[in-house]
Computed example of a mutant assay.
Amino acid sequence: MILSGKEIKKNIGKDIIIEPYDEKKINPNSYNLSLSNELLVYDDYVLDMKKENKASKIIIPEEGLILEPNKLYLGRTNEFTKTERFVPMLEGRSSTGRLGLFIHVTAGFGDVGFSGYWTLEIFCIQPIKIYPNVEICQIYYHDIKGEYDLYKSGKYQNNIGIQPSLMFKDFE
């Protein structure tokens, strides 16, 4: 079952941590998260799952940055989130999707117990100008039924910055 916005609000500071929190970002069944002013882009065109793929940082200026089509950008939310009771899920906002901007290409499913900033997989269909701090995606929460273990993976837990793929660690 998906939590309503009122239920999310009721759990803030207890079973749901969102920092910074702004009550104006609550929706009927989600909470809007915003884009930090940093992006990462991979240095090589061909990526290798078995190797650490180097990436370079781009700063999004206040006047905006034009993203190129067919290029993967990694961003992150300004907000730190944590929950040990609910399953967090992330989706792009419909307003961004209607501009051909995809915010979370595949990994929108969070694990109960995830703690950190969300790395966003950003991809656009046509050139688009983006801005720092824009409300770009939304988090929502599912209740979880039955016994469960908390997410404890060392790969992405308690991250501070944008997290490129650490899949190469699966091959070690």
Rank of each mutant, 00 (worst) to 15 (best):
E19Q: 08
E19V: 10
P20N: 11
D22N: 13
K24G: 09
K24R: 15
K25H: 13
K25Y: 13
I26T: 02
I26R: 06
I26H: 04
P28Y: 14
S30L: 12
Y31N: 09
N32Q: 06
N32E: 04
S34T: 14
L35M: 07
N37W: 02
E38I: 00
L40P: 05
V41A: 00
V41R: 00
D43I: 04
Y45E: 14
V46M: 12
D48R: 07
K51G: 05
N53L: 04
K57Y: 02
I58S: 02
I59L: 11
I59Y: 03
I59T: 10
I60W: 04
P61N: 14
E63H: 11
E63G: 09
E63W: 09
E63N: 12
E63K: 11
E63F: 06
G64V: 09
L65H: 02
K71Q: 10
L72A: 11
L72P: 00
L72K: 05
L72V: 13
L74M: 10
R76N: 06
N78K: 02
E79G: 01
E79C: 09
F80A: 00
F86E: 06
V87K: 11
P88I: 13
M89N: 10
E91I: 13
R93F: 03
S94K: 10
S94F: 07
S94E: 07
S95G: 08
S95A: 06
T96P: 05
G97D: 05
R98S: 11
R98V: 13
L99S: 01
G100P: 08
L101I: 12
F102S: 11
I103W: 02
I103T: 06
V105L: 11
T106F: 03
A107M: 09
A107E: 04
F109Y: 14
G113T: 13
F114Q: 08
F114Y: 15
S115L: 01
S115P: 06
G116Q: 11
G116P: 07
Y117T: 01
T119V: 09
T119E: 05
L120I: 00
L120W: 04
E121D: 03
I122Y: 03
F123A: 04
I125S: 11
Q126L: 12
Q126C: 01
Q126V: 05
I128F: 06
Y131D: 07
Y131H: 14
Y131W: 09
Y131A: 07
E135Q: 03
Q138I: 05
Y140S: 08
Y140A: 08
Y140F: 15
Y141M: 03
Y141C: 00
D143T: 15
I144A: 15
E147I: 09
Y148H: 15
D149I: 15
L150P: 08
L150I: 08
L150V: 03
Y151P: 03
K152D: 12
K155F: 08
K155A: 09
K155R: 13
Q157M: 04
